[in-house]
Computed example of a mutant assay.
Amino acid sequence: MKLSARNQLKDRITQIVKGTTTSHITLDVNGTIITSAITNEAVDELELAVGKEAYAIIKASSVMVGVD
């Protein structure tokens, strides 16, 4: 698999929380926690499981943070 995204972080899945239609997948990448929301269907197709190696692939035009 080749991707244009340059931010590809590989580590192990530490948590999967399945909701009605969406799952939250958590990876611990060298102490940095990264969480992604993906469909339950994608979790099943990718055969994701806690302890399995996976990539966090980050491709975003912007990341915003705000406070009052």
Rank of each mutant, 00 (worst) to 15 (best):
G66W: 01
I25R: 00
K18N: 13
L48P: 05
A5C: 10
A42G: 06
L3E: 03
M1A: 15
K18V: 04
A37Q: 09
A37M: 09
S62V: 07
S61P: 00
S23L: 04
S4D: 15
E53A: 10
A56Q: 06
A42K: 03
K59S: 11
Q15Y: 02
A42H: 01
V43E: 03
T35P: 03
I25W: 02
T35D: 10
N7K: 12
V67N: 11
Q15C: 08
I57P: 03
R12F: 07
A42Y: 01
A5P: 14
N30D: 15
V63H: 05
A49S: 14
T22N: 13
Q8M: 12
T26V: 13
Q15F: 03
L3G: 09
T20P: 10
M1I: 14
I57T: 06
L46E: 02
A60V: 12
L3I: 15
R6W: 06
I57E: 06
V63S: 04
V65G: 00
V63T: 07
V29N: 11
I38N: 07
K10Y: 06
T32Y: 05
K10L: 14
V65N: 02
H24R: 09
S61Q: 14
Y55Q: 01
N40F: 00
I34H: 08
K10A: 11
T39G: 11
A54F: 12
V17W: 00
I57G: 01
L46D: 04
V63L: 12
V43I: 08
G31M: 05
A49D: 11
Y55I: 11
K2V: 09
D68A: 10
S36Q: 06
V29Y: 14
V17H: 07
A60S: 13
K59R: 08
L48H: 04
S23F: 00
T26Y: 12
S36T: 14
L48F: 11
A49T: 05
L3C: 06
T14H: 03
R12W: 02
A56S: 15
L46P: 13
Q8Y: 05
T21I: 08
T20Q: 13
T39M: 02
V17I: 14
A37S: 15
I34P: 01
V43P: 09
I16H: 02
M1H: 07
I58C: 05
